[in-house]
């Protein structure tokens, strides 16, 4: 092993890695940091949504593709009705409900990220640093938006449960 390789391997030893960093919001136990929870949730919900989206495009295309490859001998809108029949089972509804929650959170949090990252709004203005040294961004409007978004997402999620299971 060359020196450089040795250095690299040692370096990787102490790196926490992609999976831990993207899945565990408490990998670093920092106080006053709900943004990290939002970051992990944004990633996980994004993954759920893209998986659903790919399936959803295939599913909504069923009246078309079933003309070439009929399911159970059904094609066109009959195939659509057949698929909707499968999807009214409880496990499919549960999946739908999870996707609905993921979409709601991802959209609201994405809106906050749009404002902060793209427009540079809601982040702390530089101040003269004084003890006890609190970073201004952690008390800036973006933090309020974050709490609001958690609450609104939960309320809408409960409402969607009412729609989907009701």
């Amino acid at each position: 092993m060359s020196d450089d390789e040795k250095f690299r391997s040692l370096e990787m030893e102490n790196r926490q890695g992609f999976w831990k960093a993207s899945l565990n919001p408490w990998l670093i136990r920092a106080k006053n940091n709900p943004e990290r929870v939002a970051f992990v949730l944004h990633r996980v919900t994004g993954f759920i949504i893209i998986a659903f989206l790919l399936a959803h495009i295939l599913e909504t295309d069923s009246p078309v593709w079933s003309q070439y490859a009929p399911i159970n001998g059904l094609s066109g809108w009959a195939a659509w009705t057949y698929i909707m029949g499968i999807e009214s089972a409880w496990w499919a509804r549960l999946g739908e409900w999870i996707v609905a929650g993921a979409v709601l959170f991802h959209a609201l949090n994405g809106f906050r990220l749009l404002l902060t990252e793209f427009f540079g709004l809601g982040i702390g203005k530089p101040v003269e640093p004084k003890p006890p040294y609190e970073a201004p961004t952690l008390n800036a409007p973006q933090r309020t938006w974050l709490y609001i978004e958690f609450v609104v997402a939960l309320v809408l999620w409960a409402f969607s449960a009412f729609l989907i299971f009701g």
Partner: peptide, 24 residues
């Protein structure tokens, strides 16, 4: 924008805010 950098910084340098400012 996980902002853990700002949460652990001992001098309130606030790198998370700075990076978002830099990006915009």
């Amino acid at each position: 924008f996980a902002a853990t950098c700002s949460a652990v910084c001992p001098k309130a340098v606030d790198p998370a805010g700075a990076i978002q400012g830099l990006r915009s």
